[in-house]
Write a protein that binds this DNA or RNA. Sequence first.
DNA 1: CTCGAAGACATCGTATACGATCCGATCGTA
DNA 2: TACGATCGGATCGTATACGATGTCTTCGAG
Lengths: 224, 224
Amino acid sequence: MAPPRVPAGDLSKHEAAYRTLRQRILEGRYGPGYRLVLSGLARDLEVSPVPIREAIRRLEAEGLVTFERNVGARVATLTDDAWEELVEMLALLDGYAVRQAQPMLTPEILAEAEQINAALRRQLTGGIDNEAVMALHRRFHRLIYSRAANTYLVDALDQVWDRIDASRVLVSLYPAKRLASAVDEHDELLQRLRQERVNPSDLEQFARWHNLNAAVTIRNARGR
Amino acid sequence: MAPPRVPAGDLSKHEAAYRTLRQRILEGRYGPGYRLVLSGLARDLEVSPVPIREAIRRLEAEGLVTFERNVGARVATLTDDAWEELVEMLALLDGYAVRQAQPMLTPEILAEAEQINAALRRQLTGGIDNEAVMALHRRFHRLIYSRAANTYLVDALDQVWDRIDASRVLVSLYPAKRLASAVDEHDELLQRLRQERVNPSDLEQFARWHNLNAAVTIRNARGR
DNA sequence: CTCGAAGACATCGTATACGATCCGATCGTA
DNA sequence: TACGATCGGATCGTATACGATGTCTTCGAG
């Protein structure tokens, strides 16, 4: 009997490096601007610099890392304007995804979404843990948009969320007041999603508007 | 006096390889499924396999190339469904981009767009050169959407168009009847864009609808 | 003290080498 | 003939080596 083609944990080294680096960036261990020195990472991950370079190239193509010739790689840093543009993309994509996902949503999914939103609401009374809020918020949205049929759309949304996570902006800037509104808007979204005969275009517009609200709030929080 | 930092034509080898390969894919010299053998390309481009690998990784991250471990790289092939999903993305992104670009469009830009559309219309009477039609069609749309303020949006549109070009689907399947409709729709789009007080939401919907028409037509041309 | 040049160091960029893996052809056996 | 094992070539995956480039520090002149 032949052994399994890929014994589960056996990834190529560049693939493993890619996943490790990506994870470290997303969880904030490597924050924006952090310098990714090839030889250092190679030592750290116990591989040669070659697969590290490949991993970095992929991260670069995904926008999580910037690279300067003969200088090196850094975790991407977003200007305020760039951050707003990304959120605008999120709003555009998520709006359409919600519209497309709506017929696919089962009562179970909606119930789970309600659970997540309830956990978010609990953060309002207890102290707010921004990391937890961001994770819950992302989970809430992904639960819905991931049901959209268009796989490119879902992938694009995942990627945009990754970049927003990597920027660490929301983690530091999400104000309690916005969270309160967001939780209410989530409830309204769920309510609309439960209706059979909801107007798809209205639904898309509402979801888009909800996402854009975050951008507006952060812009104000930054003081214009 | 120090020499210029980057003497114009002096790209790193992986960058040069990336551009060369990308171009060859987009112009159809390497069609869908074409096998990209690292050592062969290295010989061809007169570099070592290492920078070729980096170039391929970037192309892979952009979706132009698929890669299989220990097997190698191929130019990406789109299933019919995947192709339709990509066009749907195009419609979503382009619709919003047109809406955002509208206030930035000068009479000069609109005149140029009209020129391009006139060239498209000429293809209807003379024999149709599909390569030329595709290039003109893309130029027409890019002229408009590239004025959108959101750079991520513009980049995403460029990328989706690249993938569609690389798939060579439109080149072989664009029927004359659809071209006639498309040219008319372009005219209507330009007419709407010229109005100062056009409703942004209507504009977006119209542009989205126009792009989706292509998908519907091709689906029918393929015989469901 | 300030400025600029020169050198040392850190790091990147690519070539080369070689082991690992896969695929297809060959050969033997039922 | 049909099937499966074995072998060989093609190709990938990664380590190592070293030259090229950029950056920082030091040192000397003004």
